[in-house]
Design a protein around this nucleic acid. Structure first.
Lengths: 254, 254
DNA sequence: CCATCTTTGTGCACGCGTTCACAAAGACAT
DNA sequence: ATGTCTTTGTGAACGCGTGCACAAAGATGG
């Protein structure tokens, strides 16, 4: 979904297919739930159902990690949680900075899912001097002038960009120059980064448009289209709208 | 990406590949920017660069829509904007409801990208009685008791779920029962829906975990390769990403 | 110890998506 | 008109991901 992903063309990371890596967090979540209910083992069928995938796919995914199952029995929940956590690098601490503390940035800062998986919000950064010092989610916002120092002092390698689109590339450049090598981008812009830097993007507007496409198709499946004229530039509601960039956090006009 | 997404198995929508549909919004955004600068035509090479994709891929994508280019010249920007908007169903109005007005729900409600592409926030819904009537982004929050009525009165077919994970499936069921056929899910849960209903999910935690995986791999690979220097202004190859899948947070631990 | 039953791990085939490479189409200059 | 130059549109090959289907592995019971 919504998602987007950084294509890693030839470099299939460590023999584990990218598609598999993307599903590991899903399995981990399901396994964690089982673990909390003290379920000792789980079959590929059950776990696949919980994760919403095909059981054969799940077994193949796990086969990339090694043979952690027992035939006739299933997988040991605790062991699998550990192995996947380890594979994903969640057994270590990942300090993260969030840049752009608007509505979305603040929501992200308050997001409880960070801490629970080894991610720690090391700092909040915003360009607005009025925000400086103001606490959000218990963490004081710092001014973007100090971005480089913050990154280096905290050993941050993962950055989250929640700025308006116009500022995203610039922020990205500074993050990368300061040593960040993984970026989660909520701004509706294509970021260009040097080799070796991973970018993943989250774009609400794109997700909605994809839904709209399918929705339209569903709706149009009973009515024959009254294929109207095709005046170029006609259908555009005003695109010059744009709005005050000042604050809108993540997704922007597409 | 992003996204994880609900698979649309065999049903390749109307001959347009799903992967292409996921890129159309990207092209549209780039084209809109060109349109605002009054650029009349654009070549596949230029547009592909702006959208962060391969030019051959872009041409093939457009070929699914029809032959809208002129050889030797390129594509007419305005015409292409119209065609893509039309294909995506953005020439019509899409009323959307957001359920779960916490930090994230409020951020989404304030998001400016809705209106600019035919999406209109028809209602905000929350289960907390204390929220009822309280305006968020200029729209009064309504209580979830009235969910069905709100959906039907407004003819809503797209719902956004920004509730805690525990409430998501229940909310989803009610939305679907009330007539919603497309859902954008921000809660970190696998939703099960009947056939004919599209679900796209946005999951911040998953995105971070995928980044952590690659980050760990990079860190582990620095056994052999020492720093190649060339810090800041290095040559940029761009990061293609996408994801259909985008993702975002909701409110709960992963 | 042997038979049976369950569930994993995987070989294989298929289909989608990406990319290359090039012929065809049209603009433009002479 | 004719030739040249640019750029599209697409046939074809390739690689990745998915899912089937089954043999191997181990548990369990007699």
């Amino acid at each position: 979904m919504a998602t987007g992903r950084t294509h890693r063309p030839a470099t299939r990371s460590r023999g584990i297919p990218e598609a598999t890596v993307a599903r590991l967090p899903l399995y981990l979540r399901a396994l964690t739930a089982l673990s909390e209910r003290s379920v000792p083992t789980v079959s590929s069928e059950e776990l696949a159902a919980a994760a919403g995938v095909n059981s054969a796919k799940l077994r193949k995914d796990f086969s990339y990690l090694g043979s952690y199952g027992t035939r006739g029995v299933g997988y040991d929940v605790e062991y699998l949680v550990y192995q996947i956590s380890r594979e994903l690098g969640l057994t270590q601490d990942w300090p993260v900075v969030i840049v752009g503390i608007g509505n979305l940035g603040a929501a992200l800062a308050n997001y409880g899912g960070f801490a629970s998986r080894g991610f720690r919000v090391a700092a909040l950064i915003d360009a607005d001097p009025a925000m400086a010092g103001k606490p959000v989610a218990g963490i004081p916002v710092q001014h973007s002038d100090d971005l480089e120092k913050i990154i280096q002092d905290n050993g941050v390698s993962i950055g989250v960009i929640a700025t308006p689109a116009g500022a995203a590339q610039q922020v990205c450049d500074r993050l990368v120059a300061a040593g960040v090598t993984s970026i989660l981008n909520f701004a509706p812009t294509v970021l260009s980064v040097p080799d070796g830097v991973d970018v993943r993007k989250v774009d609400l507007s794109i997700e909605l448009q994809i839904l709209a496409f399918h929705e339209q198709r569903k709706a149009g499946e009973e009515a024959a289209a009254s294929d109207g004229g095709v005046p170029a530039a006609a259908a555009r509601s005003d695109a010059a709208d744009q709005g005050p960039d000042g604050d809108m956090p993540a997704v922007m006009p597409a």
